[in-house]
Design a protein around this nucleic acid. Sequence first.
RNA 1: GCCGGUAUCGUCUAGGGGUCAGGACACGUGGUUCUCAGCCACGGGACCGGGGUUCGAAUCCCCGUACCGGUACCA
Length: 498
Amino acid sequence: MRVRFAPSPTGHLHVGNARTALFNWLLAHGKDGTFILRIEDTDIERSTKESEIGILEDLRWLGLDWDEGPDVGGLHGPYRQSERLHLYASYANELLGGGNAYYCFCSPTKLDEDRKADLAAGRPPKYRGTCRSISPDDARGRIEAGERPVIRFKVPESGDVTFRDLVRGEVTFSNDVIGDPVLVRSDGRPAYNFAVVVDDALMEITHVIRGEDHISNTPRQVLLYQALGFSPPEFAHLSLVMGPDHTPLSKRHGATSVAEFRERGYLPEALVNYLALIGWSPGGDEELLPIQELARRFALEDVGHSAGVFDQEKLAWMNRHYMKEAAPARLAAESVRYFIARGYLRRRTDDAMDFVTSLLPMAVGSVDRLEEIPDRLKFLFEYDPAAALAREEVAGVLHEHGAREVIVALPEAIQGPLVDRDAFRTMANRVKERTGMKGKALFHPIRVALTGEGAGPELDLAVPAIERGAAVPSSAGVAPIVNCRDRAVSFAAEIGRQ
RNA sequence: GCCGGUAUCGUCUAGGGGUCAGGACACGUGGUUCUCAGCCACGGGACCGGGGUUCGAAUCCCCGUACCGGUACCA
């Protein structure tokens, strides 16, 4: 089995295309097949090298590696259409010679008028075959005279094309709704329908798995395979991915490219797992599955027929799950950039990394994405009693019964660094004895005084983290952190001042 | 307009001639004796409409409707 993913390098890798790539990859890996990457860059106006590089990067990040492709090579190369022009030219000549294609001199303006006229008359717009009857000799003469024709494929005038679609079953199109498609443009570049067929045939692709938007191209392609003397591959057309409003997923719906999801702090295994579940189900009740297991269970027959809505919430839930499963060191490495962006980390030293790693258990599980981790830990780096008390969320706590007493008693109760849970609990007990406050009346004021916030990670974890941070040497590149005792003193002073 | 495709909770889906129509996300309630998030438990929530076939239809057939794709010298 040989499958391929064939993106056009005209922008970022969209999650819908990533899903197509994934389904191809899953099929190849579940069946010991070969996964090929081909770059369809015949549209020179829109194709860019940067896009190509970006797409390759995104695929690798997702873990969708390929066995043959533009960068890794292979026996069926080259793998960029722009490097295969000679092949298309040669097959176009073959078609011309065999009478299966002809030169068309119709101007774009004329074609456009015909199309509008058809539409206005309620007829399906379709090429009228005006140039079908031009003899090869006449055509040659006009070309020598300087005209630049396109080459069109001669679609049989009657009959129909039926192909078997592995997800949808048999699909039939009548030939008379298919206009003669352009094979080669007037500038000599091949058109999509022609290039794919030549490439898929020459690359010996056995299963063409692509988006449903290509289903109506399939009959022309099948006809081309036949005219070229190749046997068509199996086809499978995947339904499309939609936004919540059931229109095609676009920027309006938020992130749509793999690169954006990566930047926002999603883990590749979460995106892969989520994408696999749009339009496919592994059966049974499990849906949290690693890519290898997805591949083991994947079957085209189980792919759904209807379009699926991209659900950001469910992706977020999956991402939380995979963050909890990920090794702390890896998470730390992946999150540093967000700490740096916030100014919480100035340099990436070993001490800084150890510190960040130690903070993770407090944040992972509470946030949806890596990017949100620093915000959850803001209380460490941005302690400011005056600013805190200016906020209703914090100031309101002072009105709670006994809150002021707790805060006033706090500085004296902190006799040394609260290095762990026990040290913190012991300290809290001292305040409890002195003030008679307990439970919420005790802990809520302590939270506010020590973190400057009304909500956040559990104090058993947060307080020792503050002390650890305060003890990090300034050379480690961590933004300065105020220790608990100093916090208690300045917070008490601040409310005394008010 | 024409051609093709699709239709189960809000969303992703399982199932499929007789089921309490199952799961997940989201949502609601309660618990986790500092809070938020998380986690746990419980709960509400669906077979597009109309005909037909059948003892029996969500399931099979037909029609309709809605939605999606295509109808390019874009892919």
